[in-house]
Design a protein around this nucleic acid. Structure first.
Length: 835
RNA sequence: GCGGAAGUGGCGGAAUUGGCAGACGCGCCAGCCUUAGGAGCUGGUGGCCGAAAGGCCGUAGGGGUUCGAGUCCCUUCUUCCGCACCA
């Protein structure tokens, strides 16, 4: 008998699928569609089993859905722009395109080697002009709508390289190539996308995603958007008529307790304020120190609070009180107004600051219940809502009422208003890098900023010979690229030399899959209407915030452009766990990778697929074990041997009428086999449809195989058509997970050569076949298991209790005791409560 | 600090709605087969007591609801993850 030869089998079936175009599907409104999407990879390094887990899960789902009769779109592509390609160019002298394309070729080879059921006609690569021209097109549309705009913003600057560094190139506050050189902040003009315009909608729509997205992803997005309701209040500065400082607070009810204002060290007003103040030079120096610490400290959050008095005072607009203006390292310029009021009695941070620097700590909120606060007993701030005291006309109000009233009053009196602010900031997309999408605008001496007309798209990334990693945006060093004529006036103009953040590429790529070769538009809306939104997205938790927020934002922009008619791009999201080796995520630098190709070489990809599905539920991390994988290899061998052994007897037999019809005449062995097979089928189908616990699915299939072994020899007491039906059930259930072996066994069992299982109909669960004739009833006395007995299945509560009590052995258990209560659960148990 | 997830044998992990805890696999033990085994097959494998029958204990700790709790409620502890001086 032939042994299981995964290498030969896998090669054979991959060639067959390829020849049959088995996984190609075109839009067909008469059929239900299903969009399974795995996050597109950044092609870098070698593929390891950590990568493969993602695709294996997606492939199992795609294959299952096909068998369920869906028209499945399952595409793959490459997130091909990015910094590592450019770094490789700098370090090894390879062009980024060459480096990237080599990696893509290698990734693709491995994916083919694993037999993933992709429709390769839809493959995209984001670094090709055919793709990124549409990034440019979207950018121009956003420019028209005022969503894209320019403003000055801070970047990391390495003085030695004389270049801008990406965040990833900053290590411990220093340049990645000059580890002793601190990065300096530098302000340059950059492009932004107004994602904040959609902040409210991005937040609110999370509710609709509650069913299909993991709770923690929703929470992370919610926190990232960070909606906060509060009040903006303007404090006039003493001695500067017309100059005021605005603060944002969520607790305007505590404002009578403000004993100071604290500004962020970068606050723009500071320069004016401290000018001419006594000890000005000293103050300037302190400011410089604080600012430097802010840029350098890796752990700002845990840093001790530091600050100093500016020498100036402001007036609390509510009570006219004069309060000192301070600078504090813990006040963030990026959030709110970059200035806070200091209410030590009712804010932890202010309390710490005030205690350190001796600011007053007036109490203005008292707890509703419990002991009132006094200055003597106050050893920490009281931050909860309560009742106002010492607050002028607001004294006696509850916090929530006071906030409402005081915000309204501030507006009436003209020094503030209620406001909602977000933590979310606009998306800075300018990158001073080469390997990305050129931003399609130019700057004309006469006309200023001019968008590149649509007809001139794409703005093609010029080939570059040298990558020094020095200087500003690399594109600035290519005169043929930079120097152009203004499309408006024909005069001299120069191109924008920055490229786009690569998150743009991944924000809409899965729309392009629906219509990947369209050269008139990013996609045909009709095709997108059919295929989108994505039914199931699968990827790592690492993208829980940025990618998934940006893609939601893009969807809403496309909707407002009239390109799509849905509000959310992804209906269900699944975040799979990582693959660990030695407790750590696989990575080349840690030297703990299990290469996908090596793995396929040693065991075959089906074994690798099965192991990644079996070793842990898909959402949990999975520790790679060389020992445990042997178990999966053994199981597949066992299945192969089992089917081969019976093939000769079974492969001429027709299965068709179905076993259900002949149930009445079935032998005990046949009944046992069919029962197990259908019990397993019921649970496997449920798992494939809802929660994808492939580990449990695999265990069930192992149980079925064990049951078949128990019923051996099948030649005695099992008709071939029944045996064959059971084998077919097993093979079809295996197909989504180990498709190559399943196809081979299908053929061995007598199906015409090349009859692919890819579109075979998923077997139908037959309840009568799964039903037990007899069930073992657990008999409990006072909740403790005391015995078991076999009864016919389906007895109702009363009948079951009667049957159990009629049994002499059971009667003995409660002999002489009074049964005060009988609890019966049909087909499960009887609990006798005795006094 | 805030938010999220989770704690079950030596290990990975099972356990639809509250109903036999430990399925399935790894490892380990014993046996069979074999010239040999890092192959295959059979049986065993939560702890304690017991020759056995059987009994007691057991899902991080404590308490509760219930005829019955890994599952529900309260509480304490631990671990992992995310955000983190967000005013």
């Amino acid at each position: 008998m032939a042994e299981y030869d995964p290498q030969a089998i896998e090669k054979k079936w991959q060639a067959r699928w390829n020849a049959d175009r088995a996984f190609e599907a075109d839009a067909d409104p008469s059929k239900p569609k299903y969009y399974v999407l795995e996050m597109l990879p950044y092609p870098s390094g070698t593929m390891h089993m950590g990568h493969m887990r993602n695709y294996t899960i997606g492939d199992a789902i795609a294959r299952f859905r096909r068998m369920r009769g869906f028209h499945v779109i399952h595409p793959m592509g490459w997130d091909a722009f990015g910094l590592p390609a450019e770094n490789a160019a700098i370090q090894r002298g390879i062009h980024p395109r060459e480096w990237t394309n080599t990696n893509i070729a290698s990734f693709k080879r491995v994916m083919h080697r694993f037999g993933f059921s992709y429709d390769w006609r839809r493959e995209i690569s984001t670094c090709e002009p055919e793709y990124y021209r549409w990034n440019q097109w979207f950018f121009l549309r956003m420019l028209e709508k005022g969503i894209a705009y320019r403003k000055r913003s801070r970047v990391n600057w390495c003085p030695k390289c004389a270049t801008v560094l990406a965040n990833e190139q900053v290590i411990n506050g220093c340049c990645w190539r000059h580890e002793d050189t601190p990065v300096e902040p530098k302000e340059i003009e950059q492009w932004f996308l107004r994602i904040t315009q959609y902040a409210d909608e991005l937040l609110d729509a999370l509710q609709q995603l509650a069913d299909g997205w993991p709770e923690r992803v929703l929470t992370m997005q919610r926190n990232w958007i960070g909606k906060s309701r509060g009040t903006r209040v303007r404090f006039a500065v003493e001695g500067f008529s017309g100059t005021s400082i605005e603060v944002f607070t969520t607790r305007v009810d505590t404002i009578y307790g403000a004993s100071g204002l604290i500004l962020a060290p970068e606050h723009p007003l500071l320069a004016t304020l401290v000018e001419g103040v006594e000890g000005h030079a000293e103050i300037e120096e302190k400011l410089q120190t604080l600012r430097r610490r802010l840029t350098r400290a890796a752990d700002i959050a845990t840093a001790e609070k530091e600050g100093f008095f500016t020498g100036r005072y402001a007036r609390n607009p509510f009570n006219g009180e004069k309060i000192p203006i301070w600078v504090g390292n813990f006040v963030l310029m990026e959030y709110g107004t970059g200035a806070v009021m200091c209410v030590p009695a009712h804010d932890d941070r202010d309390f710490e600051f005030a205690t350190k620097y001796g600011l007053a700590i007036p109490i203005v909120i008292l707890p509703i219940e419990g002991k009132p606060l006094t200055a003597e007993t106050l050893n920490a701030s009281f931050i909860e809502y309560g009742k106002l005291v010492n607050s002028g006309p607001y004294t006696g109000l509850a916090s929530d009422k006071a906030i409402e009233k005081m915000s309204a009053d501030a507006e009436v009196r003209g020094f503030g208003k209620g406001e909602i602010i977000f933590r979310l900031k606009d998306w800075g997309i300018s990158r001073q890098r080469y390997w990305g999408t050129p931003i399609p605008v130019l700057y004309c001496e006469k006309c200023g900023m001019v968008p590149v007309p649509d007809k001139d798209l794409p703005v093609v990334l010029p080939p570059m010979a040298k990558f020094s990693g020095l200087g500003e945006s690399p594109l600035a060093s290519v005169p043929e690229f930079v120097n152009v004529k203004c499309p408006k006036c024909g005069g001299a103009a120069r191109r924008e030399t920055d490229t786009m953040d690569t998150f743009i590429d991944s924000s809409w790529y899965f729309y392009r899959y629906a219509d990947p070769h369209n050269d008139k538009a990013p996609f045909d809306p009709a095709l997108v209407r059919y295929w989108l939104p994505v039914d199931q997205y699968i990827g790592g938790i690492t993208h829980a915030i940025l990618h998934l927020l940006y893609t939601r934002f893009f969807c809403k922009v496309m909707r407002d452009l009239g390109l799509v008619n849905h509000n959310e791009p992804v209906q269900r999201l699944f975040t799979q766990g990582m693959v660990l080796k030695g407790g750590m995520a696989m990575s080349k630098s840690k030297g703990n990778v299990v290469g996908a190709e090596e793995m396929a070489q040693q065991y075959g990809c089906d074994t690798g697929r099965l192991y990644t599905l079996f070793a842990a539920p898909p959402e949990k991390d999975l520790e790679w074990s060389e020992q445990a994988i042997e178990g999966c290899a053994r199981f597949l061998q066992r299945v192969y041997r089992l089917v081969s052994k019976h093939a000769e007897r079974l492969n001429k037999v027709q299965v068709g009428s179905g076993a259900a019809a002949s149930l009445g005449s079935a032998t005990p062995k046949e009944k046992a086999l069919l029962r197990k097979a259908h019990q397993v089928l019921r649970r496997v189908t449920h798992d494939f449809e809802t929660r994808w616990h492939f580990n449990s699915v695999t265990a069930l299939l192992m149980e079925l195989v064990n049951e078949i072994h128990v019923q051996e020899p099948l030649e005695e007491g099992v008709r071939p058509e029944i045996a064959k039906e059971v084998f077919e059930l097993l093979i079809m259930m295996l197909n989504p997970m180990v498709p190559h072996l399943a196809e081979e066994l299908w053929e061995i069992l007598g199906h015409a050569p090349g009859t692919s299982l890819a579109h075979a109909a998923w077997p139908k669960f037959v309840p009568e076949l799964a039903a037990e004739d007899q069930v073992e009833i657990v008999v409990q006395v006072n909740g403790r298991v005391k015995g078991r007995m076999l009864v016919e299945a389906g007895l109702d509560k009363e009948a079951l209790a009667e049957r159990v009590l009629a049994d002499p052995k059971i009667a003995q258990l409660v002999d002489g005791q009074r049964v005060v209560k009988r609890v019966a659960v049909p087909d499960k148990l009887v609990n006798l409560v005795v006094a």
